[in-house]
């Protein structure tokens, strides 16, 4: 699915979005007014440049367009894997990006992330999972690691992992599993302006976003332990 197709589907009223390498940035028109559009494309590996590029643009939105909603488009195969990136503390740049998204929330910007392609580990953590709510397109691939690699690392037979994955959403790749566990709000069949606008309007009506993912995981039957455990620590 091309970026153009996704943008046309989400923003039929018009968009002005450009691609810098694999960084996507611009704005678009919706029934709720202008929204900022930020993210990555072509399964970008997130290194310092993309992380800082996105972070700077989030700060621009906060400083120049108070209250403007932000739509994050997520397509990342994870963090960039290189010694030079780690030498300059890549985790620090990803943390910085996460703080910028968090600041936007605190300053009253509604945010929504849509996984359009891949969403893997560190790249996903730094902005996709930092938005108020995260959505995914039907063919999105959300994972930490594929089951074959997981079998190698954990030394658990691949067949056994496949068998268990049918019963539990806890470890196997797939947007559906993240939906059941409460981290993905909904899966959209196609990029749709109606769905996007309804989601943004719903979030704006709900007021300041709190992290409700654990509760959602219980409601959807995909994550039973987290909410009760956290609550037990709060009240211990």
């Amino acid at each position: 699915m091309s970026l153009q197709y996704i943008l046309d589907g989400l923003f039929p009223a018009g968009h002005d979005v450009s691609v810098h390498g694999q960084l996507v940035a611009g704005c678009a028109q919706t029934a709720l007014g202008t929204v900022a559009v930020l993210g990555t494309t072509d399964a970008a590996a997130i290194g310092h440049d993309i992380a800082l590029g996105l972070a700077g643009r989030v700060l621009d939105v906060v400083d120049q367009h108070p209250g403007r909603p932000i739509v994050f488009l997520v397509d990342t195969k994870g963090q960039a894997l290189s010694r030079a990136e780690e030498l300059l503390c890549l985790n620090g740049s990803l943390a910085h990006l996460a703080r910028c998204v968090d600041l936007a929330r605190r300053q009253g910007h509604t945010s929504l992330a849509l996984v359009t392609g891949e969403a893997v580990s560190g790249g996903f953590l730094s902005f996709g999972l930092m938005a108020d709510k995260t959505y995914a397109l039907a063919d999105a691939q959300v994972r930490v690691m594929d089951l074959k690699a997981m079998a190698r690392v954990t030394k658990i037979p691949h067949e056994r992992l496949v068998e268990l994955a049918a019963e539990s959403p806890t470890f196997a790749p797939g947007a559906e599993n993240y939906l059941r566990m409460g981290a993905i709000e909904a899966i959209w069949d196609a990029p749709s302006a109606a769905l996007l606008e309804a989601a943004l309007a719903g979030q704006q009506a709900a007021g300041p976003a709190v992290d409700g993912r654990m509760v959602r995981g219980v409601e959807r039957g995909g994550r039973h332990l987290a909410a009760a455990t956290a609550a037990a620590v709060v009240s211990a």
Binding site: L125, F171, A183, A226
Partner: peptide
Amino acid sequence: GVRLHEANAGLIAISEVMRAVLDTRA
């Protein structure tokens, strides 16, 4: 980082920890 044996639960948990650290600081 993420415990691969519970990969999705671990990744989501870390995301929740990230938000909670920033809430605590705020």
